[in-house]
Design a protein around this nucleic acid. Structure first.
Lengths: 232, 232
DNA sequence: GTGAGATGAGAATGATATTCTCACCGCCAT
DNA sequence: ATGGCGGTGAGAATATCATTCTCATCTCAC
């Protein structure tokens, strides 16, 4: 998590195998402090960025703004991050991860598997709306940019959510409230549908553009999971 | 379509109301040639951009590249477009519009409403895949950028497709093969689901990330449209 | 042939990300 | 205590683009 260039460097130069144990321990001790300091700095950058996202509703702020707000320096910023891109990715993964935890907990308190799944869908939908609790932009201009340019990283970031939804789908299937299928694929389809449709709903854009709500999307997805009533 | 700054200027300065008809005709005649020339230039820019998109698989090319390739000048580019943004938007709308026409035609040759809808879904899915006929990027980094920053324009661009799908859903409902609902909203949901899920499927990214295929997404959507088997 | 608008060539501007320079500082093994 | 090393700050230097501007030239309808 947060692969920092410096941490790699430290590991390579300060722990060159073949050292007596005491030396390793010593180095370890002295390294720990440095690592802590570094993590604090990183956190200040992340916090500053989060604030800026909240304020400007976009990731269009400049690196300089992050630096100024966190009262550090450009030099330091690039010491810790490979670039603005890395910082945003860290925030993105973090947001999805926290979201997954939240949803898992909330759904866990539902004994009915179908209601649990429904709750999860509703929560995901609301958190994916264009400007929800700005604190945690599951979707931002950045997220979509990632989707096209680095799909693999998006997939990675989605993993925590995918896991939660897969579990919920499995439970529902085990309980027999929806037909058995391939839980992971179903969960994937479900997630993508909910997230993207939510995203597309930011603007009651004039005449057209149906503004779908949580209940509608849930019905749609439930139908999708339930499959078509088999006909001749 | 393609609101060009100069055309507005011409209209304002050369047709100042209250002119005898002959004069308007004269101006009209003399303007026509200029308009044609301009349209050719515009087209050259568009073609060049299209080529670049095809080659680089992204809209990250520079305005300078468009200019060079079309053997025109920066001056001229900005004479005709408000900026790179306008040019991309034009290409985007055009692509969706052509796609809509294609789908409408193909679906039209299906007598069974359900098969027609299925065909439409399949075609849309395939055209929305990350790197299909690169000629017509329904989805590009640009499209997604638009989605966040100018949702209204996306909605506008989607209209042709939305119209087609709305018709197909209506036909299916009229034929009784799916339950009646709100065709426009259903079509919207359908489109978004298909397009976005397709987009999210570009990369078999290692272990996770279920790669959904056209048949799967069709089943899912059909289920969604058909609704849940009514329960107590 | 004349004048208004269009064009070309390319310099100028402005916004950003990213890198580099250099002086300084704190830590810790000797 | 001290010498060296990695981290830091301040900010200049680069690099890349989009967009605008300058000026000379061109084209066409009159």
């Amino acid at each position: 998590m947060l692969p920092l260039k410096w941490s790699i460097v430290l590991r390579v130069t300060a722990v060159p195998e073949e050292q007596p144990a005491w030396r390793q321990r010593a180095v370890e001790r002295s390294t720990r402090a440095a690592k802590l300091r570094a993590e604090q700095r990183v956190q200040r950058f992340l916090d500053a960025a989060q604030e800026l996202i909240a304020e400007k509703r976009t990731t269009d702020f400049t690196v300089q703004e992050i630096v100024d707000r966190s009262k550090q320096s450009l030099r330091s910023f690039y010491q810790h991050f490979d670039g603005k891109h890395e910082l945003l990715l860290a925030l993105f993964e973090d947001a999805l991860s926290k979201s997954a935890a939240e949803i898992r907990e909330a759904a866990g308190s539902q004994s009915d598997p179908l209601l649990a799944l429904r709750l999860a869908v509703t929560m995901l939908f609301e958190q994916s709306l264009p400007n929800p609790g700005v604190e945690r932009p599951l979707f931002s201009d950045f997220a979509l940019q990632l989707l096209v340019k680095h799909p693999a990283q998006v997939a990675t970031a989605h993993l925590p959510l995918l896991t939660v939804f897969t579990e919920l789908v499995e439970q529902a299937e085990d309980a027999g409230v929806i037909p058995a299928g391939k839980p992971r694929r179903q969960a994937s389809l479900l997630m993508q549908t909910v997230m993207f449709v939510a995203q597309g709903n930011g603007v009651p854009a004039g005449s057209h553009a149906a503004g779908v709500n949580a209940e509608e999307i849930w019905q749609f997805c439930l139908g999708g999971l339930s499959g078509v009533p088999v006909r001749s």
